[in-house]
Design a protein around this nucleic acid. Sequence first.
DNA 1: TAATATTATTGAAACGTTTCATTTAAGGCA
DNA 2: TGCCTTAAATGAAACGTTTCAATAATATTA
Lengths: 342, 342
Amino acid sequence: MTTMRDIARHAGVSVGTVSNFFNSPETVSEKTRKQVSDAIETLDFHPHAAARSLKSNRTRRIGIVPVISVESNRSLHAEDSAFLEFLSGINTALAEEGFDLLLSAATSKVKETEIYQRLIGEHQVDAMILLGMQKHDKRVKLLDSLNFPFVTFGQCGNDEKYSSVDIDGSSGIIEAMDHLVALGHQRIAFIHPPKTYSMTEQRLNGFWEAAKQHGLNPEPGYVMEGAFSIESGQAITEKLLALPNPPTAILTPNDISAFGALNAIKMKKLNPGKDISVIGFDNIPSSAFWQPSLTTISQPLREIGNECGILAVEKAKGKNNLKSIVFSTHLVIRDSTGRLDP
Amino acid sequence: MTTMRDIARHAGVSVGTVSNFFNSPETVSEKTRKQVSDAIETLDFHPHAAARSLKSNRTRRIGIVPVISVESNRSLHAEDSAFLEFLSGINTALAEEGFDLLLSAATSKVKETEIYQRLIGEHQVDAMILLGMQKHDKRVKLLDSLNFPFVTFGQCGNDEKYSSVDIDGSSGIIEAMDHLVALGHQRIAFIHPPKTYSMTEQRLNGFWEAAKQHGLNPEPGYVMEGAFSIESGQAITEKLLALPNPPTAILTPNDISAFGALNAIKMKKLNPGKDISVIGFDNIPSSAFWQPSLTTISQPLREIGNECGILAVEKAKGKNNLKSIVFSTHLVIRDSTGRLDP
DNA sequence: TAATATTATTGAAACGTTTCATTTAAGGCA
DNA sequence: TGCCTTAAATGAAACGTTTCAATAATATTA
């Protein structure tokens, strides 16, 4: 294999200079720089990652530990194409900086916490990206106690000691409610994500604020907790439709569960978008193609991922700045919402 | 940080012994083993990955370079939940062995080939998993020329110098055709994946073999090349339905494009599953929930991923055995196929 | 021109493991 | 008991970088 020694010899300089070429090129004279880069070119040299890492204590890797549940398809964080969009955004940011993504998911045999501890203990990554934030997130506690840098997609309740990227879920919901009210809806149900998720509080706030603004008085059964799965959306919508005074519009936790809601409506021989309106969350690609096409609160998943990647790399490089980036959502109006016939 | 030195001191042995504890425990006496493992426990020791890697030339990482297209949503390999299922399978296998997955996707700025070269040159991974195999796959050529171990999901045409996991796509298609013929269909169209993919030949073989067996004589326009996207499925189905003598059943490259086909049929005010039958490929979770639910050729993506992971780890450990594992598909019959009314 | 300041380069000591030739300890046997 | 075999444990030399004090070369100033 080609090493820095070889490059040094070939370029007629010392290994130290070759190292400088990579790590602080500004200290290398232009002439030498050319010689070294020529040698690298002709010998097709790539610095040995482990050797770099050992000496420098930097891996140039960012870790992510999604939850992919194997037993059922009700995975929590990485259940659908939303995750892929997010990943793609991260990847773009990392590629730009020559970083790679280390992905390790929990399994039935290997606990999530163990993975974090191992990855950090073994010095496998320089920073981590967390998603699916919980209100009292044990991962945050763990990483915090280990003093390990991380970035979160979503807040995590307690405080602002860490950097995060998030969306303004509250105004997303408000915009959606405005839209529904403008279409004549008054009986609006809200299926919210599980209470343990930090995003849930935001969204509930948005719901109640909009309800107040529009003078709505949601019936008790209208606000229900749901999961992110299609089955959950379907089951809860069935319950909503069985209410003595069923809602005419339903907000769901994500697009996938919205699909379930649409199914439940069709199975009741009702007309989604006409009799009952449905709004999703995420704007995943297939939401445009479902029938009826889904009105949904769009979050810029690629940009969010990208920003997470950028922040993670900054952390990895030792920058200790705190940033909270908030993206706004926008409502994509399609056919699953419609004017309420009187 | 805790190092082997510390463990050695704490356990009253030499560092060599601690190393042996990890790498060839059978050479360490039971008594010593206990002492060392106690020390590891109390000091919460994790071996430094880079140091291990530097000396041993093993990273305990497997690389994967999916194609996630950013510009449009027409990504090639990792477009949908099928990829996540596959990933989940890989992850299970790797977790079992203490390996991690290094994921790096091409972007508009960073070419695929560069990534492979860098990952290998930098010694970032011990083996790679390839997917979306092409008939003449440049990645295979590259890895082969670098003598770098890899495993493929799908064949790659020329020969059997490498290990692969694949499905029997041919009989999958045949089973689907049998099902359609049994339902009374004679005019069956076949949208196949792009010709560059190695899977395409298999599937075409299956199609023609079944056609022959059943004495069908597909019209020229019935066999068309499609992509894996919903748009493609929709567009091509529109063309098929515009034929002077349109087909009564359509086989598609994957579930996602099958959804497009269903949409096209509905938009023509035809009844999918009644007037026109559609069969997908993959059996991704949402195929059960689409309306009508999708009849599809199921491939065991998690098991396939798992097997890829197992083989990759074997390669990573230096085993040089060639294996070709073929999974069989099975037809999942749902509502998108139905008896043809005369 | 000599002295000084600035800029480039060097070389050797780490970093935390693995590896393997050696040494030490423990049994087995006559 | 002494000799031989086997099993365990040792210690030091790598692995390929980074880092930094020290040196060399060059430029600047009076």
